[in-house]
Design a protein around this nucleic acid. Structure first.
Lengths: 143, 143
DNA sequence: ATAATTTATAGAATGATTCTAATTTATAAT
DNA sequence: ATTATAAATTAGAATCATTCTATAAATTAT
């Protein structure tokens, strides 16, 4: 895999900024998440990162996904009730989920966490916004 | 189980308004969801609805949960990465999830779906808002 | 009543995720 | 450099939630 949009140094920096020790596999995975765009499933990630030369185990993919999620570098989204999809989150945004094709889009929504924090002494760290509906393509196809 | 807050007639009406045929088990389940409050896991629902006299199967619980979700009477929330929790949604609201104790609270947030619908021809049906953070209790305990 | 349809059940099957123990790789210290 | 220490990765087994299949029970319609 080539790092089209990000240099190895940039990727390393991203990991370090999130308190993650950079390793070859973690860099590969991050590169894929950032460059591939979209919202891949675990299966797609595994296929892309571990094929064909650089074999790696499924367990490692889970390890790294969980680590990234824990460190706030990654967010998981349920698409339909089928698969979990992942999104490397360098900037906060919401998601639109099409209930027909299960595709996911980024949406420039954002809650005002600052304002919410004032309520009742709850400390707000992050927000997760998913809007369910039907995408233009699927609306067209169901006519 | 007794229907403290809702009469059988009220529960029946709720089901019918959502296009769900009322049956004994569905009424039981709805009653539990509405009366118990909170955000029970599938396991808690199963234990509460199927114990001890009125035995019912796990498959039925799943059937009904899925039916309710499909009809928009129920929303599922992932708590932590552990369990899925359920919430009977008679009114739209968001959720606050405490990442320490994994408890979930209702939050009076709501997105302006009307406004979002205008964007790019996407049809918005429902929204899902989860705010992650730490509840007051857990903040106190970690001092 | 009888037939037809819908619901509920039990238990097996599936499939995603985690766990365990072993191995490899990287890091630190002498 | 070499060895010791820790961290990352691996393979495969184990776990566990969810779905599926086929059957039984209940409800509704004729």
């Amino acid at each position: 895999m080539d790092y089209k949009d990000y240099s190895k140094e940039e990727l390393t920096t991203v990991l370090q900024e999130h308190g993650i020790q950079p390793t070859a596999l973690r860099l590969e995975l991050l590169a894929y998440l950032l460059c591939a765009g979209g919202h891949p499933t675990r299966e797609e990630i595994h296929a892309a990162v571990c094929q064909p030369e650089s074999k790696c185990s499924l367990a490692s993919i889970y390890n790294i996904i969980n680590l990234f999620a824990e460190k706030g570098l990654l967010v998981s989204i349920r698409s339909g009730d089928n698969f979990v999809r992942y999104d490397a989150t360098l900037a906060p945004h919401g998601h639109f989920h099409c209930s027909k094709c299960n595709e996911i889009w980024n949406v420039p929504v954002n809650l005002d966490l600052e304002r919410l924090s004032q309520l009742q002494g709850f400390r707000c760290d992050s927000s997760e916004i998913v809007i369910h509906g039907v995408c233009p393509e699927c609306q067209k196809n169901s006519l």
